[in-house]
Computed example of a mutant assay.
Amino acid sequence: MSTIALRGPARVVLAQHRRPLQLLGALPVLAVVVLAGAWLWTDHVADAFAATGCSVEHTTRGCGDTVREFLDRELWMPKLLDWAGLLMMVLPAFIGIFVAGPVIGREMESGTYRLALSQSVAPAPWLAAKLAVPAVVTLASVSVLSAACAWARARARTDGTHYPSEWHERTVYGSMGTVPIGYALCMLALGGLAGLVLRRTVTAMVVTVMGYGALVAAFDSVRNNLWPTLTDTFKLGSGYRFPDGAINVGTGWLTNSGRRLPHSACLEWSPDFKQCLAEKNIGLRYFDYHPASHFWPLQLVETGILLALAALAVAVAFRVLRRRHG
């Protein structure tokens, strides 16, 4: 990173926090190298296994050890993708901690921010630089990381790995698309607000982590309601098959009048199951679900809410700064 093109507060922020920002900028490069290298290695393993003449589906005599060794090596890639997904899930918290603590909270606690405000720098440009410089690096870094994870998982589906993952799994959904960017920018803004309001480094960092946990828990509980679900109805014994790759949101019974009843209204393993259906006038079973095609609508709605929260946090931060320092 170069400070030549930067002036004023932005240049100071970059000089003060060069190491963490360089580390954040280097993460995508490291991720691309690791994922690309891992796929080259797994391709080599697959070619070597194909050359043995053994098959996972039809194991012939003498191939047992070869198949087990191949599957063990193939399992390494899904584990790597899970670790990458875990990194993408905790990265927003670290970004928020970085802004809440070293970038803003420490200066507010030590009082060094007064030096900047006394050097012909207005409060608003000072705070704008504190938030904008990490935001630019975060946006670029997390975007590349998300694209790299998406490429790797798409490659896994194309290669037909024996250890597939579903799009709605938390480490998968949270590592691809626009949601990682939304969480990262939202936590950056919330971290900045916490540091500015609390004016204590450790306290602001702890509150930021707690806020991230609450944010993740809230979206996990309401995510399925962010976009309308699809509903399939069918008769028992009709041979209905739940759509591949879909996530089950709800299931139950439909009466002949169209009223919904919970699944527990009549239990299939109960001795009086058929009598229960007749007494309650139940004619159909239903499934509410999100198909794989709902990945992007859910992502975009969740990202929009996160960006709105980030904008709100930034607006509140500037309002607090204006009240305290004019």
Rank of each mutant, 00 (worst) to 15 (best):
M1P: 08
T3W: 09
T3P: 04
A10K: 12
V13R: 09
L14K: 08
P20W: 06
Q22L: 15
L23S: 03
L24S: 07
L30C: 07
A31H: 13
V32C: 10
G37L: 07
A38E: 04
W39G: 02
L40R: 14
D43R: 13
A46L: 00
A46V: 10
A48F: 02
F49S: 04
F49I: 06
A51W: 00
S55Y: 12
G62L: 11
T66V: 15
T66M: 06
E69T: 15
L71S: 00
L75S: 05
K79H: 13
K79T: 14
L81E: 08
G85K: 05
L87A: 15
M89Y: 13
P92L: 13
A93D: 04
F94S: 11
G96V: 12
G101I: 13
G105C: 03
T112F: 11
R114L: 15
R114N: 14
R114E: 11
L117V: 13
V121R: 01
V121G: 03
A122V: 11
P123M: 03
A128E: 06
L131P: 01
V133C: 06
V133N: 02
V133F: 06
T138G: 00
T138V: 08
S141W: 03
L145I: 15
A150Y: 09
A152P: 06
T158E: 14
Y163T: 11
Y163H: 14
T171I: 10
G174K: 07
G174W: 08
G174C: 10
S175C: 02
T178F: 12
V179A: 10
V179E: 00
P180K: 05
A184C: 08
L185Y: 06
C186S: 12
L188A: 00
L188I: 08
G195T: 08
G195K: 02
L196M: 00
V197G: 03
R200V: 05
T203S: 08
V206T: 08
V207A: 12
L215W: 11
A217C: 09
A217W: 13
N224E: 09
P228T: 12
T229G: 00
T229V: 10
T231H: 05
T231E: 01
T231K: 06
T231M: 03
D232K: 00
T233M: 01
F234N: 02
K235S: 08
K235M: 04
L236R: 12
L236D: 04
G237N: 00
G239Q: 08
Y240W: 12
F242P: 05
D244W: 09
W253Q: 00
L254D: 00
T255L: 04
T255N: 03
N256K: 04
S257Q: 02
P262T: 02
P262H: 04
H263K: 11
C266F: 05
C266R: 00
E268R: 13
W269K: 15
S270D: 14
Q275H: 13
C276G: 00
K280M: 10
N281K: 05
F287D: 03
D288A: 07
Y289H: 11
H290G: 11
A292N: 03
A292Y: 06
F295V: 07
P297L: 14
L307K: 05
A311V: 15
A313G: 01
V314T: 14
